[in-house]
Simulated scan of single mutants.
Amino acid sequence: MPSFDIVSEVDLHTFTNALDQSNRVIETRFDFKGVDAQFERDGLNATIFAEAEFQLTQMEDMLRSNLVKNKIDPKAMELGDVETAGKQVKQRVTMKNGLESDLARKIVKMIKDSKLKVQSQIQGDQVRVTGKKRDDLQQVMALLREADLEQPLQFNNFRD
């Protein structure tokens, strides 16, 4: 029976590349010359350091554009509060990885409401969808791509 998994993952290697590219952009930009600003990675989290809040917003835009270039959906990025530490301001960036139980339940409900002949079940931080026809599974994928969910979704482990 054909099946696939619905997941929400961020590849650590590509996220590191996006942060490194953003750090290189800061080094070469004229408006950041002599400014103590940088991105620091800690697993799938990052911290943005700058001297002023307006620089944080510019750095946030840099990070978003580099995430898009590295094929990571910016919806996976969650920004924390701006904190002041001495002469610097910092902001925490958390990448959403894995489906939360509320979102997984919402996805299962959407699939059931669509009246397609498929079964969906929550397995940890992913949702497995099985059906008799491959076309039904592709319709589920199209349905979820059109839906405006707060997290980017990937479809993997497609089996015939």
Rank of each mutant, 00 (worst) to 15 (best):
K71Y: 07
G43C: 01
N45V: 06
N23H: 03
G43W: 03
Q38L: 10
Q58V: 14
F39H: 00
I26N: 05
V68W: 09
F49R: 08
Q55E: 11
L44Q: 00
I26L: 09
L67C: 07
A37W: 00
M62W: 04
R41Y: 00
A50T: 00
F39E: 01
K71A: 09
I72P: 02
D31G: 08
S22V: 11
Q21W: 10
N70T: 10
F49A: 02
A37Q: 08
N45G: 10
L44N: 03
A46C: 07
L63F: 09
F30H: 15
L44Y: 02
D31V: 05
T28H: 13
G34I: 13
F39I: 02
R64N: 14
L67M: 10
D31K: 10
F49P: 06
Q21K: 11
F32P: 05
E60S: 12
G34D: 15
Q21I: 09
D73L: 02
F49M: 06
K69R: 12
V35D: 09
D61F: 10
V35M: 09
Q21C: 12
R41P: 01
E53C: 05
R29V: 14
R64H: 15
T28M: 15
A50Y: 04
A37E: 06
G34P: 12
N70F: 08
I26R: 00
S22A: 12
E51W: 03
K71R: 11
E60V: 08
T28K: 15
I26D: 02
D20P: 08
A46I: 04
F49S: 05
D20F: 14
A50K: 01
K33D: 15
D20H: 12
D31W: 10
M59R: 01
D73A: 01
M59Q: 00
T47M: 06
Q55Y: 07
F39P: 00
L56W: 03
D61Q: 09
F32S: 04
F54G: 09
N23Q: 04
R24Y: 15
A52M: 14
M59D: 02
D31M: 11
D31P: 08
E60Q: 12
A52Q: 13
R41T: 02
V35S: 10
E60C: 09
K69C: 10
E53F: 09
K69G: 12
E40W: 04
A37R: 06
D31T: 07
S22W: 04
A52I: 14
D36H: 11
V68P: 08
E40Q: 08
G34F: 15
A37C: 09
M62L: 12
Q38C: 10
S22C: 06
Q21Y: 10
P74A: 04
L67Y: 05
I72M: 04
D20R: 11
E53P: 10
D20N: 14
D42G: 00
A46K: 02
M59G: 06
L56E: 14
K33G: 15
L63C: 01
D31Q: 13
D31N: 13
R41W: 00
K71G: 08
N23K: 01
S65G: 10
